[in-house]
Each structure stands twice: as structure tokens, then as C-alpha cells.
Amino acid sequence: MPDILTLLGDTWTTVRYPLGGATCLLGALLCIVGTIGVLRFPDFYTRLHAASITDTSGAFLVLLGMALMAPHWLVLVKLFCMLGFLVLTSATSSHALANAAHTAGLQPKIGPVGQAGHEDHEEAGH
């Protein structure tokens, strides 16, 4: 039984650095995907959705990868704090942005975008 445990521990110590690096890389690629979305999407509200990819899955995966490579338990605590703050603040600032834009009278584009044969029928939000 202790043999299996030590074997598991050894495997874990050898595997966690490549695994953490790969997770970080995946998260970073998702950040780029979110950025591409921010560049491509047609209006402000849709760009907000693309930016939230970076804020949720990208940040989560990068932080998870860093946690897998953590050299010390204090680092884990700090990463957990960062994750908590990011989750709380990114949602709040997204909402604040959307609310500010809506209050200022920026109308979102409604209806299908970018498909051939469809025209943007201007339905005001309300």
C-alpha cells in the first residue's frame, strides 16, 4: 500500500509541471480567442461576450495551471484569492460596462448578423 502511494506521489511530481504548463498554454490560447472575438464582433454588447471568455475560462485555466506548478502552499492561497477576486470583479465590471452603455443610450444590434440575405432589422431594445 505505501508503495502505491509513493508511486502515485512520484508520478504526480513528475507529471504536474508539464500538465500545469499545458493548462497555462491552453488558457493563454483561449485568451487569444477571446481577443479575436473582441476584434471581430460587430457591436459593443457582443464584444462584451467575447471578452468574458478571457475573464472566465482563460483566467481560470491559466490560474489552474499555475496552481499545478505551485512550489509552496502560500502560492496556492494567493492563486485562490486571485481566482475569487477575478470571478467577482470581472462579472461586476462587465455588468457595470453594459449598464453604463445602456444608460447612456447605446442601442444593441438585434437580430441575425452577418448572414447573407438577412438585413439588420432595427428593433429597439425597448
Binding site: 508539464p18 500545469g20 504548463g21 499545458a22 497555462c24 498554454l25 488558457g27 493563454a28 490560447l29 485568451c31 487569444i32 477571446g34 481577443t35 479575436i36 473582441v38 476584434l39 464584444r47 478571457t54 491559466v62 495551471g65 506548478m69
Partner: peptide, 19 residues
């Protein structure tokens, strides 16, 4: 691999500056 992730995020930041 961590370095690659770093470079990838930096590229993303440059693209964001464009926006």
C-alpha cells in the same frame, strides 16, 4: 511551456490594444 503561454497572452494584449 510557461514561456509560450506568456508570449501567447502578450500577443493577445497587443491585439487588444488595437481594439
Amino acid at each position: 511551456m510557461t514561456f509560450a503561454a506568456l508570449v501567447a497572452i502578450l500577443i493577445g494584449m497587443c491585439l487588444l490594444l488595437l481594439r
